[in-house]
Amino acid sequence: MDHSLTAQPPRFDITPHQIDQVVTKFYAKVRADSVLGPVFAAHVPEDGWPAHEAKIASFWRNAILYERSYDGNPMQKHMAARDVHGEHFPHWLALFDTVLAAELQPQTALAFSTLAHRIARGLRMGVEDLRAPVGAPPSL
């Protein structure tokens, strides 16, 4: 069977190398950021950045290119990190969008940003609902 005929096309035009570059540049900004740097430092040891970046790049290659190389549960990870709060997500997205605009063509940056914002919305809702008082309505 010819799998090239059944492979799902990418969500948008981007190469694995471009995804890796975005992830590397983004986490360089995160490590230097006064808000997000300490949160990430609590979960990623200094010598753990290459592995973390590889895992996140794999996540994005799966989400965009359908590589099926990512093995993880982002919702579970973000909910388990008790120092991750809903207000971190807009800041994370602003940094991410800055990197996308600097590294990619406008159309590709917009498509990647749209996907990132959609995923972040779900993660933020999960984190906020977990921390909501018992009986509080879910965030929508």
Rank of each mutant, 00 (worst) to 15 (best):
M1F: 00
M1K: 00
L5R: 04
T6L: 06
P10C: 03
R11E: 02
R11W: 00
I14W: 03
T15F: 01
T15P: 00
D20S: 07
D20R: 09
V23E: 05
K25G: 01
K25S: 09
F26T: 03
F26G: 02
Y27F: 11
Y27E: 03
A28W: 02
K29N: 12
A32R: 12
D33L: 10
S34I: 13
V35E: 11
V39H: 07
A41P: 08
A42M: 11
A42G: 14
E46R: 10
E46A: 15
W49Q: 10
A51D: 14
A51Q: 13
A54E: 14
K55Q: 13
I56H: 03
A57Y: 05
A57K: 02
S58K: 05
W60Y: 05
R61F: 03
I64A: 05
L65T: 06
Y66N: 14
Y66W: 10
Y70N: 06
N73G: 09
P74V: 06
H78S: 02
M79V: 14
A80E: 14
A81M: 12
V84Y: 03
G86C: 02
H88T: 06
P90A: 05
W92Q: 02
L95H: 06
L95W: 05
L95E: 05
A101D: 14
A102K: 10
A102Q: 14
E103S: 14
P106H: 04
P106G: 06
T108L: 03
A109S: 08
L110S: 13
L110V: 07
F112P: 02
F112M: 11
S113V: 08
T114I: 10
H117L: 07
R118W: 11
R118K: 15
L123D: 11
M125N: 14
V127D: 04
E128S: 14
D129Y: 10
D129C: 15
V134D: 08
A136G: 12
P137L: 10
P138H: 10
S139Q: 12
L140I: 08
L140S: 12
L140G: 07
